[in-house]
Amino acid sequence: MKQIYVIISLFLMVELQACMDEPDLRSDTPRGNFNALWEIIDTRYCYLSYKQINWDSVYTEYSHKIDTVSSNFSLFDVMGKMLATLKDGHVNLYSSFDRSRYWNWYTDYPSNFNSGVLFKPHYLGADYRIAGSLRYKKIANGKVGYIYYGSFSDSFSNENINQIFNSFSSCLGIIVDVRNNGGGMLSYAEQLASYFFDKKTLTGYLSHKTGTGHSDFSTPTPLYIEPNDKVKWNKKVMILTNRMSYSATNGFVNIMKYAPNSTIIGDQTGGGGGLPFSSELPNGWMVRFSSSPMYDADMQNIEWGIKPDIQVNMNAEAEARGYDTIIERAIGEIFK
């Protein structure tokens, strides 16, 4: 019987010391929500150090405004403006009535894209084909294959690409237009890029925050692209970009920089090099923020976008005549 008492006592000792101290959470008040948001960015946002943002000063600038908010709308606006100081398209505050956003990464620049021109008969026209989520057609008297891909959230298969490449087999080269493609799945970016490589190639690195400090990052993990073993394009490929080529599209363009026959043409991409994560506030609003920075193969940050090999803007006069000078330049490069 004595043994039983000893065993039961041991169990009770374990139970008594069973609680770990969990962090105190902010209260669901305007001040509590503001502080919770500020702390999430302070401890988890990955570009404070890289962008040289003094986040304490931002707190000072916006904190006193919380004392005067009179509604959820005004609280949301103050917090949204605070987040806009990060100048990051991957940072948003979500409530049931609004989504804060920073869109200057493309609104401050030429659009370099006109869908009206794109659907002129000498480009996609009305008789283009759609394989998966890719629109394609032979242009320039059948000498150039043109593919438009509008979102890396939309899927496609090896068979889709195989059919497209077969129909372009007589072409001198192809154009992959990812202008106005705001991103989506990194896996689709890697899949699309894999058709243009002939060997495993280092294309960048990815790291993540390891602590609450602004410079606490993990050892970067190398990112390799493996060539697709079923479908391949060995001729010239022109990648068309503009400032709205963002996030996963930015990642795709970064990979394509290292493809053997590729040329990036158009405007600098919009950036969005940080893999976004989510967190929540006491009132249930969600915040999205960049959490894992991505780099190119030279360990250069790609948050601000990727410069094209050939910088070309759309010419307004040509546009008025129904011509896209970025596509025309790409055709010219293929004919070289």
Binding site: K209, T221, S291, S292
Partner: peptide, 15 residues
């Protein structure tokens, strides 16, 4: 996993 580590990094990149 670490709070900032994505499942993409954990499982696709095997880190």
């Amino acid at each position: 996993p670490m709070q900032g580590a994505s499942y993409y990094e954990l499982f696709t990149l095997s880190n």
